[in-house]
Nucleic acid binder design. Structure first.
Lengths: 210, 210
DNA sequence: TTATATGGTGACGGACGATTCACAGAGCAT
DNA sequence: ATGCTCTGTGAATCGTCCGTCACCATATAA
């Protein structure tokens, strides 16, 4: 990351760009793409409308830039977690932990990200699908491969690894949603998720509360 | 349900209303609230724009009516499943089955429903929150109470019942999303979900593939 | 100092889309 | 037949944005 190469002007330019993105993220995440006008973003970021168009060719490009940033950030966090050393259960646990951490720290982004990842082609049409979903798929596949290898080693029972990945991610998302939407009394952490997922819920004989 | 009391006119009126809702559901679920114009709904439903306003006071009211219908339908299906006789595991299984069934049969509605339930205050502001979310909460609570009672009977391990409900629902949603979005090769059914959820994933000794 | 480039501005054009309303025609009662 | 009501119509209105562009102001170069 040698940004030292950049002139003051260039740094200014990037700072401004970041500032716009930051404001836009906040607004979009609160109100959704269609309920935020360029004028509003301009006012909030203390630039003129015209200036926004010096940075982004149009509203959708601005949104896209935002989503791609967010998506890349999330993706790389999760991928790193899955790559850390350790056996399969450890990797998976690290992944859940990473997900919680990143999501907690960026709840604005999360709303947007989830809206795109899940609510699908809803908000914005082309381009993003092909980009964000691909990244998400890649993550699921990688997670699936961890499950697969755990199954081969006979650490896990043999379910379809991809579906295990979907399931685990589903639980994590559900908890995070819950937290973001209601931030209610029910606390949770990576341990809990992993435990619910890995340990049998059924009691088959002996009692084993923690 | 004695609709026999209705005059022909009244029946016509309701039929037309239903027709509009049906078309609107299709369009909204495909393109999202903001990307569907009243004009488009009018054309598709073969009514004039003005006619739509005879049925619904504005675009949002139309959308709201739709969402409330959908939400009520889903809610009642799930609640019924949870009320059927049987012990806790059976109830939960019935619930998952009901969810899959209803969702599969109404994938148009599901997109909308999920967009509201999860992507939250995104698409439409007031009113819906307070209505749909309450219903969703009610469902989660009821599911949680089933878990709770299962825990009391020492059928399940003692996790926070509400979080178990969130987790289970999260897995089911994840699978359904996956199916709706990618309808890929990975098939699943209520059994699989319940198994992943209830049976231990970890192998603690003996092998027990099905 | 003057010329030029560059970041920044914001009023304005044009399009689009929600909503209205004056009106048409069908059915029904008188 | 005439008048009244009620469903249905769609052109016209009105507002709201997106995106443009002629134009500042600052700073750097000449």
């Amino acid at each position: 990351m040698k940004n030292t190469r950049l002139s003051r002007k260039e740094r200014e330019y990037l700072r401004h760009r970041q500032e716009i993105l930051k404001v836009a993220l906040k607004l979009f995440s609160e109100k959704g793409f269609h309920n935020v006008s360029m004028h509003e973003i301009a006012t909030s970021s203390e630039f003129a409308v015209g200036t926004l168009y010096k940075f982004f060719s149009n509203k959708e490009a601005l949104y896209r830039a935002l989503m791609i940033d967010v998506s890349k950030a999330f993706h790389s966090s999760l991928m790193v977690a899955l790559t850390t050393s350790g056996n399969e259960p450890e990797k998976i646990r690290a992944c859940v932990e990473a997900k919680i951490k990143v999501f907690m720290e960026n709840s604005d982004s999360v709303r947007l990200y989830l809206a795109e990842t899940r609510a699908a082609s809803f908000n914005i049409k082309a381009g993003l699908d092909t980009d964000i979903k691909v990244r998400y798929e890649e993550f699921l596949e990688k997670l699936a491969r961890v499950f697969e290898s755990g199954i081969k080693k006979r650490l896990f029972k043999s379910f379809d690894p991809y579906l295990l990945a979907v399931a685990l991610d589903g639980i994590a998302n559900a908890f995070l949603f819950q937290h973001i939407e209601y931030s209610n009394a029910h606390t949770f952490d990576a341990d809990l998720i992993v435990n619910i997922f890995f340990q049998q819920i059924y009691k088959e004989g002996e009692t084993r509360d923690e």
